[in-house]
Design a protein around this nucleic acid. Structure first.
Lengths: 316, 316
DNA sequence: TTGTATGCGTTATCAT
DNA sequence: ATGATAACGCATACAA
């Protein structure tokens, strides 16, 4: 049972091999009648065009480059998993590369991908990096996580997510809400998430109790410590991420502070298991992955696609 | 600056293209002299053979299939990350597929991979699955995580890891050690890890205090509860995984049981951040990934490779 | 609408 | 040891 080629199908269908090729590629210039006959034969014999022959002929590989930040990130892994599934359905493969938040690495990876004649690139955008150099590339590109001007982007609604949590807290009678986040240099997870909090303090005329560090557990722990050393009276703490929230939680636990509720972003099941009253908001990472996969495929097929904003959802 | 082909190189080096091809493929039948000249030209012009042309000609794609269990697993992600880096260095791509611990899915994935004329497969082996059907395949296969008879395997030393932890506890004067693990149907993480504990009880003539469930946080929690309801007197609990240990820890915390030390497997930084006295053992997942990548490439190149056993290391 | 011929960049076969 | 030549399976320009 050796593999069939386009010639075999042509012979079996009683047509020329170019006709078969046209059918495969959905060329309009083929009569409905012959098209059906050819499709029939293809199906009967379970014929699959040789990927490598197509790649060679078209000088384009059915491969998508994915530049993510770091595979250890749970949410990112989830997104990637769903990107992969979407790509596989269309018989695309993927090359997964980690930027590790470095501009240099990103540039390097792009160079590698260019040499591979890949069909498209999905980039997990980072606020602090510069992507203008990509605009010269003629390769379709999709940005994920953050809107990047000049590129089709699938972005998280960072502002809306924190606003959503704040509204939830307000509705549940929490009155003194603090915020622990990351530096505003990070436009999305830093500036935008914080902005929602700042706007809340302005709108409701509350004291702005906010602290900034990085995404580490320790940063959350230390900032919580600072907050309580300064004797701020709070009944809830909104954190920019689950990891920060975990640090905060550890501090509260250690000092037997029981009545302060903590919220985060990411919906890590582990934290929710540990702390029954933990509230997290997540962006539906599965959906994001699916959308990103579909977006890059659409872009390759020259369909025009619009930016997508992903809302966050509270999970208690 | 269009891409150079083998013909360009041949012309520039003043040889036939077959000679260039021979040089590329390290054929012995080419004089040292011409070989050097050709290599020089290749280097000067930064010539890279077209992957797709090679793939087509050889009817083999430079792609490795990776069948893992689930991408959400941190340790597995780490292994995969290092597999990828190793493969990329040799210009291999990867297709990552999740078995989700299902025999059916595994079979399905293999079918997909077969159709793609991939060069090799790396499988994260699962005790409860049956891999004999793979023996008919002529594709190089490497098993990871667990020794599978008849396949080259890179396996974790599950027995040794628990033994290592037990020895550590004994050395530190812990006298009443309990064990919480998973069902013995799982040969490696179930049976083998437990066996180390059982052998300890026999050797030191201790009461065998062991409980079995699954890998969930909740299972750990519930089994810890059971242990204390039965009023077992223990000073330490050895768990088969970090996730189980986390459940146990939650129970201890909740009931203010402070003097019992808990150990796990996996070295999850999160748990270690939360609990300063937590002891975990890990298998050097980075190394495993690198070894697995190298192993499959060696196997493809017909080098003969031996099974590898990965030891665990305690990290306090 | 359909078929024929050509070329994509390799490697393998066969001479030389 | 080396070179000419024929595949590999497909898409496409051109001819019909």
């Amino acid at each position: 049972m050796k593999k069939l080629t386009i010639i075999d199908i042509a012979r079996l269908a009683g047509v020329g091999k170019s006709t078969v090729s046209r059918v495969i590629n959905n060329d309009k210039k083929v009569s409905q009648e012959t098209k059906e006959r050819v499709l029939e034969v293809i199906k009967e014999n379970n014929y699959k065009p040789s990927q490598s022959a197509q790649n060679m002929r078209l000088k384009k590989n059915k491969v998508i480059g994915i530049i993510n930040t770091r595979l250890e990130s749970k949410s990112e892994t989830k997104v990637i998993k769903n990107i992969l599934n979407t790509l596989y359905e269309d018989n695309y493969d993927a090359i997964i590369l980690e930027s590790l938040f470095s501009q240099e690495k990103t540039v390097e990876h792009i160079e590698v991908l260019k040499n591979k004649n890949i069909a498209g690139i999905i980039i997990f955008a980072i606020s602090t990096l510069e992507y203008n150099f990509l605009k010269k590339l003629k390769i379709p590109i999709i940005m994920v996580a953050k809107k990047v001007e000049g590129f089709t982007s699938i972005a998280y609604d960072d502002y809306g997510a924190i606003k959503c949590i704040l509204n939830y807290l307000i509705k549940n009678k929490y009155k003194n809400i603090a915020y622990i986040g990351v530096d505003n240099k990070d436009i999305t997870t830093g500036f935008q998430r914080y902005s929602a909090y700042r706007d809340y303090t302005i709108k409701y005329n509350k004291e702005n109790i906010s602290y900034f560090g990085d995404f580490s557990y320790n940063s959350g722990y230390n900032l919580a410590k600072q907050l309580f050393l300064e004797e701020k009276q709070v009944d809830s703490i909104v954190c920019a991420s689950d990891s920060i929230a975990l640090g905060v939680k550890k501090y509260l636990d250690k000092h037997q502070i029981k009545k302060v509720i903590v919220t985060g972003v990411g919906n890590d099941p582990l934290i929710k298991f540990l702390y029954d009253d933990y509230i997290s908001i997540s962006f539906g990472y599965d959906t994001v992955g699916k959308l990103a996969g579909e977006a890059i495929l659409d872009k390759i097929k020259k369909k025009d696609i619009k930016d997508i904003i992903i809302d966050g959802n509270i999970t208690l």
